[in-house]
Nucleic acid binder design. Structure first.
Length: 212
DNA sequence: AATCCTTGCAACCGCCAATAC
DNA sequence: AGTATTGGCGGTTGCAAGGAT
């Protein structure tokens, strides 16, 4: 804990929970110098923390417009769909959920959604043995007929309106938010390939949140 | 009331890519 | 061109709080 490290040597950086005092210093420093060059911010703020630690604290907790608290059904639905399509690319998923951080979504996934989905799968497996097992996103799909069928089903399942919106935005490069640190991840997506998945239509059941 | 167990979340670690020198 | 530093990401851990026994 930070409070237990009374006199850290210059090389021994403070770790653990942030104190309100540290938060205040960091907020001031970012207001003064901007949210970049974290190593220098750490020293300018008089924080004996690593730049990495400062950045993490800012991005996940102190940054303005962070939405905290329960996820809405829409957010949950979007996370599930995007995860199905993108896998564990949390920062990219977070980029589609304004105000949510990759860390929060990752935690939410492992602590709640993965369990929920497992339960659902169990239930549907008990009900009928026709349940389709979706391969992981980066898994190589077999050319066998059965696998082809599965792939088609996977595409149908994956292609939600929200995903279409994301793909279109990525394609148009409108999705990049200057405050959104995850936006660099967009480069990792093959937008054409992404859009190629979008053959099947699925009606909108809710309004896609706008990226400001 | 005390102890154990589970859950949720904040923060760290290690790796890799981008950038600076 | 090569090396060092920084930033960003996903995976993992540690701990506090609440619930169960």
């Amino acid at each position: 804990m930070a409070s237990q490290n009374q006199k850290p040597t210059p090389t021994a950086l403070v770790k653990g929970k942030w104190t309100p005092d540290e938060d205040e210093k960091l907020i001031e420093a970012v207001a003064l110098h901007g949210a970049k060059n974290w190593t220098s911010i750490a020293s300018k703020a008089g924080l004996n923390r690593s730049g990495k630690s400062c950045r993490l604290r800012w991005v996940n907790y102190l940054r303005p417009n962070i939405k905290r608290g329960d996820m809405s059904e829409q957010e949950e639905d979007l996370i599930i769909r995007l995860h199905k399509l993108l896998g564990n690319r949390w920062s990219l998923i977070a980029g589609r959920l304004p105000g949510r951080t990759d860390n929060e979504i990752k935690n939410y996934w492992y602590t709640r959604l993965s369990k929920k989905i497992q339960q659902k799968e169990k239930q549907s497996n008990n009900g009928a043995n026709s349940t389709i097992q979706f391969p992981a996103v980066d898994e190589k799909t077999s050319v066998a007929d059965d696998d082809q069928k599965v792939h088609v089903e996977m595409k149908q399942e994956c292609v939600s309106s929200a995903v279409r919106t994301s793909a279109a935005l990525i394609k148009k490069e409108e999705v990049i938010d200057p405050e959104d640190h995850s936006s660099t991840c967009i480069n990792n997506i093959d937008a054409d390939e992404f859009l190629n998945l979008l053959n099947e239509e699925e009606p909108l059941s809710w309004e896609v949140p706008q990226i400001s």
